[in-house]
Amino acid sequence: MLVGLTACLPAAPAAPTLAPTLTHTPVPTSGQSRGLLLLRGPYLQSVAANSIIVAWETDRPSHGEVVYGEAEEYGASVADPALGARHVVTLTGLAPYTLYHYRIVSDGEPLGADAAFRTAAGPDQAEFTFVVFGDTRTQHQVHREVVARILEQGTDFVLHTGDLVDNGWDTGQWAAFFEIERELMARASLFPALGNHESNSPLYFDFFHLPGNERWYTFDYGNARFVCLQVDGFADFGPGSEQYGWLEETLVANTQPWLFVYFHVPLYGSVPPHSAPFAEMEETAQRALAPLFERYGVDMVFSGHKHSYERNEVNGVTYIVTAGGGAPLYWAGEREPTQAAFARAYHFVLLEIDGDCLKATTISVEGEVLDQLERRIDAATLPFLPGQD
């Protein structure tokens, strides 16, 4: 649970800029792999303290391998034993919150430049940053400009609140998404939530490699727990559903000081619902989910869908709509009585964790600060840890 607008100590510094990453242009290779083109990636998935997934796709079947190490000389490698166009390689045995260089190769020939990632912070690492944004489905130039601003922050990882593309069944739209996100996803793991425009497409599950069942999942990073839900019109989340039961079990089991939840359709927002079904979904979510968030001490809830930025403070929980990643902006209707901030602007939210302090800064595509808040954990509401007196 968060305490008011209590000022924190200086926020954690942004992670340092990582080593050069791949360019946006597919790179032909030499030797045995001459003419092989890199169509997608490499992109990072499901970063953890001791492991990370590296995925990529080439224009034709090939052998794939990741060479990596704490220096550009690498020193270690993992190969995908299958011959194919799509490759998914998991690197294990890594050190927490450590910078690694990596490169993908095929038949001993590089498929691009050296890149770098940082593994996740372990439970003893309480300083890190992350970015949240969403609704990148159209207006690719705006999406590109938002990503460029995010890259300036050197963030550790990224959450996406859904509607990555306009039509989840369109392979061309996914190709455009990954091309725009190429440099960012080569540096930092993207943890997306399903939006209604993904349309429950199997392509989403082909491209992303996420924890759990990939629809709703959880992961820990440093001293925080993150919970992703499927609130998009394609899955039940009410009492008695599989997702609701899983959510309550996950919240009950949490022992991390910070607790964040994210999904697509928001509980609160001044932009009117698109249609009656979405209005009903919002009302159902308020009745079903808000009591769980309040009961189990969720600190912040991030959503998208309503193309704007908005922050509402409701019964000790901060609800943030971050849906300004590229899709056309919406106008607000009647102001929510719990509204603390609103901006009709393309943007992202940068969060900096420094122990028991949090700083959230909403930054527009032009670089303007739209909203900023600092919070400190209320020690009286922290989860009880085994062994505590």
Rank of each mutant, 00 (worst) to 15 (best):
T98Q: 07
T98S: 07
T98C: 05
L99M: 08
L99H: 09
L99N: 15
Y100K: 00
Y100V: 10
Y100W: 04
H101W: 15
H101P: 06
Y102E: 00
Y102H: 12
R103K: 10
R103W: 02
R103N: 12
I104R: 04
V105F: 05
S106W: 13
S106F: 05
D107Y: 13
D107E: 13
D107Q: 15
D107I: 01
D107M: 09
G108K: 12
G108S: 12
G108C: 03
E109G: 03
P110E: 05
P110I: 14
L111A: 08
L111E: 14
L111Y: 03
L111M: 10
G112E: 02
G112A: 07
G112T: 06
G112H: 08
G112V: 08
A113Y: 01
A113S: 12
A113R: 07
A113L: 12
A113F: 06
A113E: 03
D114F: 02
A115W: 11
A115Y: 11
A115D: 09
A115H: 05
A115N: 12
A116S: 15
A116M: 07
F117N: 04
F117V: 11
R118V: 15
R118Y: 06
T119Q: 02
A120G: 12
A120K: 07
A120M: 01
A120V: 02
A120R: 01
A121G: 12
G122A: 14
P123W: 05
P123G: 10
P123E: 13
P123V: 05
D124S: 11
D124A: 08
Q125I: 12
Q125P: 01
Q125H: 09
Q125K: 15
A126M: 01
A126W: 03
A126G: 05
A126Y: 00
E127W: 08
E127D: 14
F128R: 11
F128E: 10
F128W: 11
F128D: 06
F128M: 09
F128V: 03
